[in-house]
Design a protein around this nucleic acid. Structure first.
Lengths: 159, 159
DNA sequence: ATAGTCTCCGACTAAATGAGTCGCACAAAA
DNA sequence: TTTTGTGCGACTCATTTAGTCGGAGACTAT
């Protein structure tokens, strides 16, 4: 229950990847393209492309066309909240159907609905949670910290 | 995104209804049957029936056969957590596919997966949230506009 | 006892959504 | 101007969810 879509998964992976190439201890930002990410994580390219396009439209990343093109973060990782990313890819958070209804088009059971208020409360708590976590937080959590010790000897990193 | 299924909605509504008939200000418990609930909230009877059967199997409610039969809560509303109800109807909470995987059958991107850990953390937070809220809390929330004025008789409000 | 309700349960169909594919237009660097 | 990449929309296929149907068994009232 409450599962995220693949798009969301892929999007988060890609962002994590882009971010660590851009803000890692490698001194200069590196543009990373769709194909590279798709291969690294075994994601179908076309699907990932669509995901990245969506993120780009939302301003979370910026696209650069042409050869040597690819994607870069549109903002600092600290300013990119998980909530924002998920909303961009899956639409607004809505625990129940009637989450954002205007008073007009209510669901069939609205008039006697006894669970709307408590569910809205839960929803708001979840939103707060997602909104308080940023891409930066996801960066910290990965192996990646160990890079410090072996930083000297590899930059290209392909298996 | 993160929408609950209709089954979950219906289940919660039904539970709320059953609970308020059983623990409401009417002194004695009243058995309520599927048809009654279905009509009250405009839910297809057969579907609601299935939902109630599921809840019954989980021990959340008890069924009583025959004429004058129907359902009663299996436990005190304070002991019925939202998490339990949702799990019963929608299966275990799993933000991502690989939430409960054994090490064997990992997803395709598992080896390089960089988002599993932070997502598990989010998931656990959500679970905590759902597990800390009980049917009792949903009962209190219904009349709800008047709560501010009658703040004297708060009972369960934990946080 | 027996008739009439009511729960119980599994199998089924239909609708909605999600995952993934294809093909081509457009942009920019070399 | 050619190459390499993004941008974008329409499309198919798979999975899940919502809702339906029909009948077996349980219980109570009469």
């Amino acid at each position: 229950m409450l599962k995220l879509s693949k798009k969301a998964d892929y999007g988060l992976m890609a962002l994590q990847h882009i971010a660590s190439n851009q803000y890692g201890d490698v001194a200069h930002a590196r543009v990373v393209n769709t194909k590279e990410i798709a291969e690294e994580y075994h994601i179908p390219v076309e699907l990932l492309a669509k995901v990245l396009q969506t993120l780009s439209k939302s301003g979370i990343i910026e696209s650069h066309n042409g050869p040597k093109g690819g994607y870069l973060l549109g903002k600092n990782p600290r300013e990119i909240t998980i909530a924002r990313v998920l909303e961009s890819l899956e639409g607004p958070l809505g625990i129940m159907d009637c989450a954002h209804e205007k008073d007009g088009d209510a669901c069939m059971q609205r008039e006697h609905c006894n669970i709307r208020t408590p569910l809205l409360k839960i929803q708001s708590s979840i939103y707060q949670l997602l909104n308080s976590m940023t891409l930066q937080d996801m960066l910290g959590g990965t192996p990646l910290i160990t890079i410090q010790s072996v930083a000297t000897e590899q930059q290209g990193v392909e298996r």
